[in-house]
Design a protein around this nucleic acid. Structure first.
Lengths: 360, 360
DNA sequence: ACGCTCCATGTGACCGTTCACATCGCGAGA
DNA sequence: TCTCGCGATGTGAACGGTCACATGGAGCGT
């Protein structure tokens, strides 16, 4: 009989590692330190430190001996001690809103992975709302941690402004900024993506296209809206005012339902896949069909989008790549790295089945 | 003209805080320390430390003076120094697989939030695959951080076993364990949830029900499968072997397509919403309809599920609550806290439109 | 053969906290 | 009045690393 799945807590038997006490000099209750290793290896603590830091001038033989003792004693460097003296925490902070969404979550995972590969730790702080207090709180939390770099995945204007006021004293990256500092800019061209989506609709013959945008405050939302308007303008298609949403499928649904009471459009470009999903739901609820009656394009290409009904035409963003470049930028690897890293991440249009010719 | 949305890096003008130098004794280049505060406030460093730690026997007047100086100097305690001497990092580690999924991401966010409220930091390590090496790597990374508690959101048997071998020396919680340690167990009854879903299908008249399970190794998958089999058995419905999937919508799609070539069933219970989505896609691709021809139930209730076509009947899990209880357990708050915390989190059946009467 | 440089290593101080213990009044019980 | 206890504060030593500097040979040009 299998017991129910559950959460289990295991308490350690004791805080100190119960080393099998292999040879001499058991560490006196505490975890072994650099000096314990030194004593056993018959060298000075400094030599051990040098081994730890890959100092060039250490005899291979000595190095090996120290390494062996380290293994034997199960020595682990004390990060706090190191951080104290070097005043470097080797920790990156992530300030993130909506970390449960696919995009941010993907970027976070990529950031963590890249940071770890570079020997850095990652500490997160989620902000529930984007008011100044939440932001300041989250930031203070990370700051108290002594972070060396900050990634802000809460791409709202307000956050950006608050950040500026708070006079951050560490290098930081915001995923989607207003581009105020072109010198340190690595473009992720949301505008191009939105134009791609819009052009696709126009090319298929649509002339009455609504844009379901993200929240007013969000930089991504603004950029996608901009791309939409730009493309519509350059193709001389009359535009209607975008509808400001909140990224959720729920909103897409209600907005779609509202829109359909008038039905003066043939296509909708939603600023993310969730809202697109909601719209499609509303369309079907109204007894209509996608793409026969209404064409729809999303943004992000979440993994589920390929299985929506119909499979959603959308714009793919490489969130993971974004995360990786973030870290690269923060750690300054870019200064002498391949220049293409500084180039633009170009979103890609993924054509599926949610766009057709206009019904009228 | 709005510039393109982009990633911006801001470099601090200088590492040290450029304090406006309000009164006396500018900190000599470094960030102000406890002794700087002490000097300006005219007390000993120890008194400052006591203020920091809310020691009871400090004269209110003295305390206030110290507090004022702290504010004036923009003093921030040095976490590394504190961690060094107390050998407490006040950091919780999260070892997580599939952190881009809705469930884990929600739990992580809740954990972070609860931890922060308790004055703890959270550090994450994602493991890409669940092989022993990845796990050991991730764990070593967190361990090197000096974490005081560990949450494992990679509920695979293998991870659990590897963990056991690695002889963790900190308290840890695994979200979904095998329940080997009933003493410290807080049930999240996946089995009950799966039974709920299965019973719902049976009550609607279904007798040929397939179960699209998660990966073999996953504890959640196992529990849900167990619940499915238990319920089927207790209702005397003949069972077929569950199909082992990988949680993705893609898998659901292909499995569904495969299954439909025979079509000896009227309902499918998928172990998560993504797979359910994939199955629904396959059903429609075969020219059939949900729930007219095939009924489907999912698991998790991701926010999008309400807008699938048709809206998905599923089992809701309170991921956030799970995260909160995790932290509560880890921090030991539970020992004297309200007992209902130790109770079971009961999943809830959310009935929507993906289940109907069987077609034959 | 002498001094110079460089390699391999050792010595002691220091990073910013907390901890253990000492000190100094002051009010209360004898 | 004396001492005991405790409240409020100070003193110096850890904690476990790294840094700056010192030391003692080996190699080498002159």
């Amino acid at each position: 009989m299998v017991t129910p799945a559950c959460v289990t807590v295991n308490m350690p038997r004791s805080i100190e590692v119960t080393v099998p006490e292999p040879s001499q000099e058991p560490p006196k209750g505490r975890a072994p330190s650099i000096r314990d290793v030194a004593r056993v290896a018959g060298v000075s603590h400094q030599t051990v430190s040098r081994v730890l830091n890959h100092h060039p001038s250490i005899r291979p033989e000595t190095k090996q001996r120290v390494l062996d003792v380290m293994a034997e004693l199960q020595y682990t460097p004390n990060r706090a001690a190191r951080a104290l003296v070097t005043s470097r925490s080797r920790t990156l902070g992530i300030l993130s809103a909506s970390s449960t969404h696919y995009g941010p979550a993907s970027s976070i995972a990529a950031i963590e992975s890249a940071a770890r590969a570079a020997g850095y730790w990652v500490s997160t702080a989620n902000i529930e709302s984007s008011d100044a207090v939440s932001i300041a709180d989250g930031l203070a939390h990370l700051r108290a941690q002594g972070i060396e770099g900050l990634v802000v995945i809460a791409p709202q204007m307000r956050v950006f402004d608050t950040l500026a006021q708070l006079s951050i004293d560490v290098p930081y990256v915001t995923l989607q900024s207003t581009g105020r500092d072109p010198e340190h800019t690595l473009s992720v061209d949301q505008i191009a993506g939105a134009r791609l989506a819009t052009r696709h609709l126009i090319e298929r013959g649509h002339r009455s296209i609504y844009h379901l945008a993200g929240p007013q405050d969000w930089i991504e939302a603004e950029a996608r809206m901009r791309g939409f308007l730009d493309e519509m303008g350059s193709q001389d298609v009359p535009t209607t005012a975008p509808i400001l949403g909140d990224w959720t499928a729920d909103f897409g649904f209600y907005a779609g339902r509202e829109l359909l009471t008038v039905r003066d459009f043939t296509a909708i470009f939603a600023s993310n896949d969730q809202m697109a999903l909601g719209v499609m739901h509303a369309v079907r609820d109204a007894g209509l069909e996608v793409p026969r009656d209404v064409s729809i394009v999303g943004f992000d290409d979440i993994p589920e989008a390929a299985h929506f009904w119909p499979p959603l035409t959308t714009v793919r963003q490489d969130f993971a790549e974004l995360g990786r470049r973030c870290v690269a930028l923060l750690l300054g690897d870019l200064d002498d790295a391949a220049p293409e890293y500084r180039g633009t991440i170009v979103p890609e249009l993924i054509v599926r089945d949610s766009v057709g010719a206009p019904a009228f």
